[in-house]
Structures are given as structure tokens and as C-alpha cells.
């Protein structure tokens, strides 16, 4: 189980590196889709069917948007001119990443290990099925115990839709 998850994660990292370095934008988008669908398999292995269902639909719609944007404009990645400045930027970012990795290693030390999560809140939520009456515990958490978060999410989606319509129409009136 953990080995399987590690193998899929390794493939996802390779696909992500390819997506960043691909010469053609369309193949970069396809590689990003590989990462997204690999995430679906990880969610299924982690016993999370709800978010696997959402992720597989949302990934498809994201790919449609991205392919529509890229087919409309140029497909070529910019010609890579190797100069000294670029090396400096890459070296600085690798240094930055190493510092981040060091601090992440210290942060996850007090966490419970993988698969040994302590059930402080989860037991209360599981018993809460008797109060809400919903046997899908995720739906009970979404709309009863933590309804404020979900309402905020709905408002963010609303704002994003309004923003997209507004930006696309900036020159429409002229």
C-alpha cells in the first residue's frame, strides 16, 4: 500500500518535471493531466472516494480550458537561450528549495506518522452521523459541522466567475 503510493508519487514527480521542461506547450498540458489523474488514484488508495470523484471531473474541465487557451495562441515554448543570468536564477532557486526542505523536515517531526493519525475529532464526527442523519460523513462535515467554510468557498467561486466575465468583457463595449 505505501509502496504503491510511493511508486505513483514518483511517476507524478517525473511527469511534473517533464511538464515544466517540455518544449511544446500542448505536451506540457498533457503531462500536467497525467499528474492530475495520478492524484485520483492516490485518493482512491487513501480511501477518499468523494474527492477522487471531484478531482477526476475538475481535472477534465481544467484540461479543456487549457487546451482551448493554447490552441488559440502560440503552441511553442519560448526558445531557450542559455545565458549566465538563467544559471544564476536556477542556482538561487535550488538553494531556496533546499532551505525549504530543511524547515519542512523540522515541521513534520511532531506530526503523527503516515497511517497513525490520532482520532481526536474523527470519532466525534463519526458519532455525529446520529445527529445529522447523513451516513456520508464528509457531507455531514461540509454542511453541518463546518458550514461556514463551505459558504466561504461558494462565495469565492462566485467572485471568480464574476471576475472572469468582467475581464473578458473589458473591451467589448468599445
Amino acid at each position: 500500500m505505501e509502496l504503491m503510493l510511493a511508486v505513483i508519487l514518483g511517476f507524478m514527480i517525473i511527469a511534473a518535471i517533464y511538464a515544466i521542461h517540455a518544449k511544446d506547450l500542448l505536451s506540457a498540458i498533457i503531462a500536467q493531466g497525467f499528474v492530475g489523474y495520478g492524484l485520483v488514484i492516490c485518493f482512491l488508495l487513501l480511501r477518499a472516494p468523494d474527492i477522487a470523484l471531484v478531482q477526476i471531473v475538475v481535472e477534465t474541465i481544467t484540461l479543456i480550458f487549457m487546451v482551448a487557451v493554447v490552441l488559440d495562441s502560440t503552441r511553442k515554448e519560448l526558445d531557450v537561450q542559455v545565458d549566465r543570468k538563467q544559471y544564476r536564477i536556477a542556482g538561487l532557486s535550488v538553494l531556496f528549495m533546499l532551505v525549504l526542505l530543511f524547515y519542512f523536515n523540522r515541521i513534520i517531526a511532531p506530526l503523527d506518522g503516515f497511517g497513525e493519525h490520532s482520532m481526536r475529532m474523527a470519532e466525534a464526527y463519526a458519532e455525529g452521523a446520529g445527529q445529522t442523519g447523513a451516513i456520508n460523513l464528509v457531507a455531514g462535515v461540509l454542511w453541518d459541522f463546518r458550514g461556514y467554510d463551505t459558504l466561504g468557498e461558494a462565495v469565492v467561486l462566485f467572485a471568480a466567475a464574476i471576475g472572469v466575465v468582467t475581464i473578458f468583457r473589458l473591451t467589448g463595449k468599445n
Binding site: I64, A68, A139
Partner: peptide, 29 residues
Amino acid sequence: SGGVIPFFNIFIGIKVAAALLTIFLALVI
């Protein structure tokens, strides 16, 4: 069952569907 949870699900379903469709239609227009 579930009290108000099914009604919230129906309303948020309509909302998400309409939002994604609005974004796509704006792109096509």
C-alpha cells in the same frame, strides 16, 4: 434523511454548474 443537508447539496450543485458554465461561455464568446 439528513435534515437540511440534501437541500444545501441541491443549491450548491446548481451554483457550481452555473459558475463553471458561465466561465466556459465567457471564453467561447
